[in-house]
Amino acid sequence: MDYEAIFLTLKLALFTSVILLAFATPLAWWLARWRHPLRPLVNAVIALPLVLPPTVLGFYLLVAFSPNHWFGATWLSTTGSTLAFSFTGILIGSLIYSLPFAVQPLYNAFEHLDKRYLDVAKTFNLSRWLTFWRVIFPLTRSAFMTAVGLSFAHTLGEFGVVLMIGGNIPGETRVVSIALFDHVESLNYSAAHQLAFVLLVFSFVMLAILYRLNRKQLSSWT
């Protein structure tokens, strides 16, 4: 069993979902409140990874990570290493690739949140932080769970982007989907079966838990 690949995949998925949550929450909040003609355009940019072939995204990222590009060059001069074929590189790719999966559930929830709950909180003189923790978060908890669950699950199944920018370096960029592809290419079907089965069961269990929790929360409010 490719424990190393499984561990790396879980690490990548965990990092991606946690970082995305911190980043997507204010972004989704701002987008839901922003009234501007450019809003659909920004929404489209965020949703782009949903329809874009992962190889296209991977290709552009690979170009950006190259030391010939200002981004890659700046990274190299600051950190002393390149982003291409590194864990940080696939993490950045993963964050961009899964961004809509984190932003959209939160955006929908914030958009549909009854503004009057915030009005009541305001009359209680609640700070913004307390309003978030005590009012907004509990009222949109299911969207947060969906955002984390979907970005985690989506990262588990990531293949194209990782292949383009990460290659197949054990312990660094060789995630489960790449390892599986590798096993199939080398006709090692039993190892491929094992990994595919683990991925299948894990993804299924995660989604089932997610739906179960969401349903529980929804039914308690209706």
């Binding site: 009057r116 709950y117 009005d119 009541v120 005590r134 509990p138």
Partner: peptide, 24 residues
């Protein structure tokens, strides 16, 4: 200091009645 009451109450649905009152 202003208090506001809406027609449909706008009570916090994640709290019980006591929870709403304690919140205030």
């Amino acid at each position: 200091r202003v208090g506001i009451v809406f027609q449909d109450g706008v009570l916090f649905p994640h709290l019980t009645v006591r929870g709403n009152l304690s919140f205030a």
